[in-house]
Write a protein that binds this DNA or RNA. Structure first.
Length: 565
RNA sequence: UGGGGCGUAGCCAAGCGGUAAGGCAGCGGGCUUUGAUCCCGUCAUCGCAGGUUCGAAUCCUGCCGCCCCAGCCA
């Protein structure tokens, strides 16, 4: 399945408050060097669909404005970060279809410069070393309605602060013994301005800098300055950082930074029937509620990829949900729609019987096999055709037969004639059951004159079924997925884990697929006609392919059934 | 009760003073060798209340509701 398949993104150029702001900045001459954005993940977990929104936004902006987008790891907290995450994040961004060129950076690349700026703030009287414990600092920070109290060390002489800061760097003090704080305003209504911590002592091995540092900058002290160093013009982040913008700007104003980036905040993505917080995703993996970060039920990029969602569909989804500042939760059905739409154009059609029931065509010659021509994609003539073997013994879907057909059920039933796709019209003559009363076989007759699917007399049938030759079909395992959580908002009930969907995966070990599918490669997605889109899982073995259902086809019959009871 | 945001249909979202785009879902219909795709139709007066104006979702005022902030996390 080519990722280049046509999906028409909105014809009109995207329009949102961020693009408007950038256009204004360009018009005002504030972007002489071009528009530069960045995607700044912390390598403490795997990327998920929410990050995809940010990635598409940042890289998309760079593309639209002929600028560039940097990939920068926000690796300021070695206690939580790992190389595994650094690697997976790069793979995921690439898979999504974006390229940072030579612009791969790490906040840790700037540790030396950041430290120099810390000394600068100390020297200019804008920062001080605080000896208070973490508890004391918290205590003195005040509350939402009460101002904070100044630290007893707040007015320490600059020379003394500088000495302590250098000794902090030299590793003379224990973890947590002292911190460097900005001297701003302990009474500010914005708590971020109540003398925020700039550096903390932390003896942890950093994935990139190893053991060279005993102190690490906080996010606030690292982020804006890193943006400034890289010449980022627009630093786009999520709403929870809105309160940090005054601090972001404060650093840019008080330090001799090489550029003045602008921070703009947008609402992060929320999706129904899943969770998107890193903490929870980690918990799902660690506690074994899923099989790993790439479990097809996970909203992670790696999970989505294994599930068979094409990168192009994700990009389309991100473009269609838009960017705004209102908190919002997108229905997961919208994502599924985008996947279907993309795959409808791109995926080849095949036949597969998930839950087989045997059919014997009693008037079809024993031992005879015919190769019937089937279309690969009715919406794309260029996809060509293939041959599908037909024989006396076949399998059809158990759901496609009802001994006593319900109203509006127009598939196979005793005495009823239906079409076997690309093959013949067949009529059910007899129902064979086992001792338990379970239907084990259907005896049918076929109309030899209906080869290909149409009768010369022009008579119509109301249903067309997919089928597989019993002799030539290939056994397969098929995994059907449903939403990971039962309710739209797993949090609503108070205990999100209690909302886990016990039926989020259903394994069908006895499926049988057409021969052409035996050659499908891992990751390839095809449409199983009348059922959905299925992706070859890496668990596949030479004799037995394993398929993940990416998403089902729209099922009007299921809807009718549900409505009718 | 401090500070910062947000409120347009079930969901997402345009709109930037001139009389409510689009997509998803839903509903009705057409086409059909996938009950798929595709096609057509249908589906809101903009949180509330005042005010300004010839005219307001768009401006002003006051309410109401929701979200974020008191990590040496990001």
């Amino acid at each position: 399945m080519a990722d280049t398949a046509a999906v028409s993104p909105a014809d009109a150029p995207a329009r949102d408050f961020i693009r408007d702001a950038i256009r204004q900045d360009i018009a005002a001459g504030k972007t002489a060097g071009g528009v530069v954005t960045r995607f700044p993940p912390e390598p403490n977990g795997y990327l998920h669909i929410g990050h995809a929104k940010s990635i598409c936004l940042n890289f998309g902006l760079a593309r639209e404005f002929n600028g560039r987008c940097h990939l920068r790891f926000d690796d300021t907290n070695p206690a939580k970060e790992e190389q595994e995450y650094i690697d997976s994040i790069q793979a995921d961004v690439r898979w999504l279809g974006f390229d940072w060129g030579t612009h791969l950076y790490y906040a840790s690349d700037y540790f030396e410069q950041l430290y120099a700026w810390a000394e600068h703030l100390v020297t200019t009287g804008h920062a001080y070393v605080d000896d208070q414990t973490a508890a004391e600092i918290r205590e003195n920070r005040g509350t939402l309605t009460e101002a904070g109290r100044p630290s007893p060390f707040r007015d320490r002489p600059a020379a003394e602060n500088l000495d302590f800061l250098r000794r902090m760097r030299a590793g003379e003090f224990a973890d947590g013994a002292r911190v460097l704080r900005a001297r701003i305003d302990m009474a500010s209504g914005n708590i971020n301005l109540r003398d925020p911590v700039l550096y903390r002592i932390l003896r942890a091995r950093h994935p990139r800098t190893g053991d060279t540092w005993y102190l690490y900058p906080t996010y606030d002290f690292a982020h804006g300055q890193s943006d400034a160093i890289e010449g980022i013009t627009h630093s786009i982040c999520t709403l929870e950082f809105e309160d940090h913008r005054p601090l972001y700007d404060w650093f840019l104003a008080h330090l001799p930074v090489p550029s003045q980036p602008r921070q703009i905040e947008f609402a992060r993505l929320n999706l129904t029937h899943t969770v998107l917080s890193k903490r929870r995703l980690i918990q799902l993996v660690r506690d074994g509620h899923v099989r790993g970060w790439d479990d097809p039920r996970m909203p992670t990029i790696s999970g989505i990829r294994r599930r068979g969602y094409p990168a192009g569909a994700i990009r389309d989804f991100c473009a269609r949900i838009g960017v705004a500042k209102a908190n919002s939760t997108v229905e997961i059905q919208y994502l599924e729609h985008c996947v279907r739409e993309y795959l409808n154009a791109a995926a080849l059609r095949r036949m597969a019987v998930l839950d087989p029931i045997k059919v014997v065509i009693e008037n079809y010659p024993e031992g005879q096999v015919e190769e019937l021509e089937a279309v690969n994609n009715p919406n794309d003539a260029a996809a060509g055709t293939r041959k599908v073997p037909f024989g006396r013994e076949l399998y059809i879907e158990r759901d496609d037969f009802m001994e006593t057909p319900a109203p509006k059920f127009f598939r196979l039933a005793p005495g009823r004639e239906v079409r076997l796709r690309y093959a013949y019209l067949v009529t059910c003559k007899e129902v064979v059951k086992d001792a338990a009363g379970e239907v084990t076989e259907l005896v049918c007759t076929y109309d030899p004159a209906s080869r290909g699917g149409n009768a010369p007399d022009g008579r119509k049938v109301k249903a067309t079924l997919h089928w597989i030759s019993a002799a030539r079909g290939v056994p397969a395992e098929v995994r059907l997925y449903d939403h990971l959580f039962r309710s739209p908002d797993p949090d609503a009930g108070g205990d999100w884990l209690a909302d886990l969907n016990p039926d989020s995966v259903k394994v069908l070990a006895g499926a049988v697929v057409e021969p052409a599918l035996a050659e499908a490669r891992v990751g390839e997605v095809t449409q199983f006609e009348r059922q959905g889109y299925f992706c070859v899982d890496p668990d596949s073995t030479p004799g037995k392919p394993v398929f993940n259902r990416s998403v089902g086809l729209r099922d009007t019959w299921a809807k009718v059934q549900a409505r009718g009871g």
